[in-house]
Simulated assay, not measured.
Amino acid sequence: MTGTVRKSRARRVLRRAGWAAAFVLGLILLAPVAAWAWWQPEPKARGTGANAMWARHQWVGEPHTDAEYRALAALLETNRITDVYFHTGPFEADGTVPPDKYRHAGALMKAMEKYAPDVRTQAYLGQIRVVEGEGVIEIDDPAVRAEILRTDEIFLDLGFDGIHYDLEPIYPDDEAFLDLLDATRTLTRERDALLSVALEQPTLAGPLQPVYKALLPRQGAFHYPARPTEDFLLEVAGKVDQVAIMTYDVALPTRSLAGWHFARHTRATLELIGDRTTVFIGVPTYRPPTMPWAEDLEVALRGVRRGIDQLDRPPERPYGVGVYAAWTTSADEWALYRANWLPPETVKAG
């Protein structure tokens, strides 16, 4: 009798486990279907008067003709790009940038002042941050941070309108990064210049950061997702003039799921910090290494627009998209950008 009872209990346990597995599988299968249905309505929101673009290092590292500068200015005007992050780094380990890497920055600044005076030019400076002994630049070292500030001064002296940091990875307990922002903000305020940062997309659930850290294997300097928590993002937003969210590299298997990702991060980020600082949601014009069929500029822009549609009210500060990157954007993609993002009355033939 005892054996029969045990077998009966075992069958019940197996049956319940089977139902639980079926339920979980059903949820997994329903997610793409639900995302597809959510994705179908055409978004109403259109773009704004503030948009950014990451530009290649060759603009400061190589000579250009007057015609090339004029063509760049025309591209910016046609596509309503207000802020350009010209790659001027990367930093050396000591926080410097060798002068031969930006020998043509002065000519670029003169051309921008002549042909695109209303566009804000920012020196895009980045490097791999040392984490647990691995990486290139150790910003925990006060001497390195001081050298970074001296490098910032060089670019502001050359005529750049601001400093744009892209230091990776940055984790939400990175006090050295916050100290660097404080010091840089003091400098940029003295110079009437901008300070902006590029950050990874925020966490889906901030309290899970310690779980990520404990469970996920370390890959070089990147040991768990470098995702800002809400508290960290709020703190950063209070120290800078602009935050560009690197929303791309979605790695989701369908276009509707990828679009949901862009919508979700657009809404969440603008609701959280849109009243504190200018926000640019990064959109890709390159094919990501994983699942390239699901993520492209069209999906990203549609997702951003859906996210804006979900806001109860527009943010108090300017917001827009950041195109990553100029060197991977074709003429057809710029046309798609204008057709899908810019307000119709502002679109120019180009």
Rank of each mutant, 00 (worst) to 15 (best):
P169F: 08
V211L: 14
E147F: 11
R9P: 01
A10Y: 09
G49V: 09
L216Y: 14
F23G: 11
S256Q: 00
E77Q: 15
D275A: 08
T2L: 15
L25Y: 07
G89Q: 01
E175M: 12
G322C: 13
A214M: 15
A214H: 10
A73R: 03
W334T: 03
P289E: 15
Y165L: 07
Q201K: 02
I139V: 15
L270G: 07
K7T: 08
P284E: 07
R9C: 13
R129K: 15
T188N: 06
A71P: 11
F222H: 12
F155N: 05
L311P: 06
V321I: 08
A73I: 04
P225W: 12
D94W: 04
P41I: 07
G3K: 14
D94F: 01
I273T: 04
G89R: 07
Q127N: 12
I163C: 08
S330C: 06
G3W: 13
R129G: 05
P202G: 11
G3A: 10
R9L: 15
Y165M: 00
Y102A: 10
A10L: 15
P315F: 15
P288F: 06
N340T: 14
A214F: 11
Q310W: 05
E134S: 14
D161Q: 00
L178H: 13
T186Q: 15
A237D: 11
R145K: 06
I273R: 04
K101P: 05
G303N: 06
I154C: 04
E345V: 04
A17K: 03
T277G: 07
H261W: 06
Y286N: 04
Y69K: 04
R313V: 06
A105D: 02
P43Y: 09
H164P: 03
A331I: 11
H104R: 08
V283K: 01
L195C: 11
V97H: 11
E153R: 12
A300I: 09
T151Y: 12
E132S: 13
L215Q: 08
Q310I: 04
I281P: 10
P253K: 01
L252N: 01
G282I: 00
D118I: 01
Y286H: 05
A111T: 03
P292K: 10
V243P: 04
M53A: 14
T329S: 02
T329A: 09
A37V: 08
D152F: 00
Q58R: 15
V84I: 15
W293C: 00
K110Q: 10
Y102M: 05
G303A: 08
A176K: 13
L270H: 05
S196E: 05
Q209F: 07
E68F: 08
Q122S: 04
A20Y: 09
R191L: 10
F222E: 06
R264Q: 09
H164K: 05
R218Y: 09
S256V: 01
F222C: 08
A67C: 10
R12S: 07
T290P: 02
N340Q: 13
T184G: 06
D182T: 12
Y224L: 01
P344R: 11
W19H: 10
Y224M: 03
F232P: 09
L27C: 15
P284V: 12
T329D: 08
V236A: 11
W260C: 01
Y248K: 01
R287Q: 07
V144A: 03
T82H: 00
L301D: 00
K110Y: 01
A10V: 10
